[in-house]
Simulated scan of single mutants.
Amino acid sequence: MHDRQLARGDRRAREFDAFVTGAAGRLLHTTTLLTAEAPDANVRAQRLLTLALAHTYARWHRLHGEDPYDCARRYLATRFARATWHRYGPLGRARPDPRSPLASLTAQERLVLVLRLYEGVAEEQAAALLGLPAERVHALCDRATAALLHPAKPTAVSGAGAKVVPS
């Protein structure tokens, strides 16, 4: 019996290692987009990924055919949403790095945009995962996409304090 448990544990560890080898790079990129950190300075993203992988490993024997990548992605999304929307923990306090392509977006816009466009999650699935109406997810994705495709032009400030919009 003890040998069987050891063999099962070894198999579980090998399967998980194979999963991490194949998925960790993409998941790290996803978390870096979510946290809007620079790829070379993504401490919060690495922490979020570590938490997601630990959660997935803890559930590994209970997945029963469920996609482990989907499990990790769901955990990333819900943990990021909870930490940023409720402003607690190390994920909720930092400002986006201006070098990030998604730095101009709010945390909620980044989350929806990354889930929908980068991860390919259907609108209804993203809405269910985040506890938002599908219409809200659609609106957030549209607004984030428009903000990225048509960034606002910076305004200049004149000496009298009035804003001057460049023509």
Score class of each variant (00 low, 15 high):
residue 30 T to P: 08
residue 156 A to N: 14
residue 131 G to T: 00
residue 73 R to F: 06
residue 121 V to E: 07
residue 60 W to E: 02
residue 19 F to T: 03
residue 12 R to Q: 07
residue 10 D to M: 13
residue 43 V to G: 11
residue 15 E to D: 05
residue 113 L to C: 07
residue 11 R to M: 11
residue 16 F to W: 04
residue 20 V to S: 05
residue 60 W to F: 03
residue 35 T to S: 08
residue 149 L to I: 03
residue 94 A to W: 09
residue 130 L to C: 07
residue 50 T to F: 09
residue 50 T to Y: 09
residue 41 A to L: 02
residue 54 A to Q: 07
residue 101 P to H: 05
residue 109 E to C: 01
residue 24 A to E: 04
residue 62 R to P: 05
residue 2 H to I: 14
residue 32 T to R: 03
residue 14 R to Y: 10
residue 14 R to I: 10
residue 84 T to V: 09
residue 110 R to E: 08
residue 130 L to M: 08
residue 20 V to A: 01
residue 57 Y to L: 05
residue 163 K to V: 15
residue 125 Q to K: 13
residue 157 V to W: 15
residue 71 C to S: 12
residue 55 H to Y: 04
residue 135 E to P: 13
residue 157 V to S: 12
residue 98 P to Y: 10
residue 160 A to H: 15
residue 52 A to I: 02
residue 47 R to S: 12
residue 105 L to H: 09
residue 117 L to V: 13
residue 57 Y to S: 03
residue 81 A to V: 06
residue 109 E to R: 02
residue 60 W to N: 03
residue 138 H to E: 13
residue 125 Q to I: 10
residue 4 R to A: 15
residue 133 P to D: 15
residue 21 T to I: 12
residue 140 L to D: 05
residue 146 A to F: 07
residue 67 D to E: 05
residue 52 A to W: 00
residue 24 A to M: 03
residue 146 A to P: 09
residue 158 S to D: 15
residue 124 E to P: 09
residue 93 R to K: 14
residue 142 D to F: 12
residue 37 E to P: 08
residue 135 E to V: 13
residue 43 V to C: 12
